[in-house]
């Protein structure tokens, strides 16, 4: 149940890992699509928070090519629906999220990512 809306907000939280700690890279992914009703108002309010290049790259790495390279300034309903699909309907159920900075692997099992760190990885 890791949706891309959440993944796009998530960086590595290992101690002193501040470079290339976002976005976490998916691998060995098992994807499930669950349709849900789109809320365009929410999407519009959420847009400024998105890291667009990271979202586009991640969506493409999971086989979804519907998002344009650049974040549109004026959105058509079709584009909003595509954004809704990518953010809210694509659920990563199994796989790994790997940090490009420190190499930490966050495994996802049964839809739940394991974010627990070893004691030496915990920041102070």
């Amino acid at each position: 149940m890791v949706r891309l809306i959440t993944h796009n907000m998530l960086a590595c939280h290992v101690k002193n890992c501040t470079k290339d700690n976002f976005p976490l890279v998916f691998s060995e992914v098992e994807l499930v699509i669950r349709e849900s009703e789109a809320n365009y108002d929410f999407l519009r309010r959420f847009m400024p928070k998105l890291d667009w290049p990271a979202l586009v790259d991640t969506a493409r790495s999971l086989g979804d090519e519907t998002l344009p390279d650049d974040q549109p300034e004026e959105w058509t309903d079709e584009q909003l629906q595509a954004l809704h699909h990518v953010l809210m309907e694509m659920h990563v159920e199994e796989g790994n999220m790997t940090c490009r900075g420190c190499g930490h692997v966050y495994p996802i099992s049964n839809g739940i990512p394991n974010m627990l760190l070893a004691e030496h990885e915990v920041g102070r």
């Binding site: 907000m9 998530l10 960086a11 590595c12 939280h13 700690n21 890291d51 974010m115 760190l117 915990v122």
Partner: peptide
């Protein structure tokens, strides 16, 4: 998640 380890959210 162990919240005592802190969050990585942007």
């Amino acid at each position: 998640h162990d919240i005592g380890q802190g969050f990585g959210f942007r």
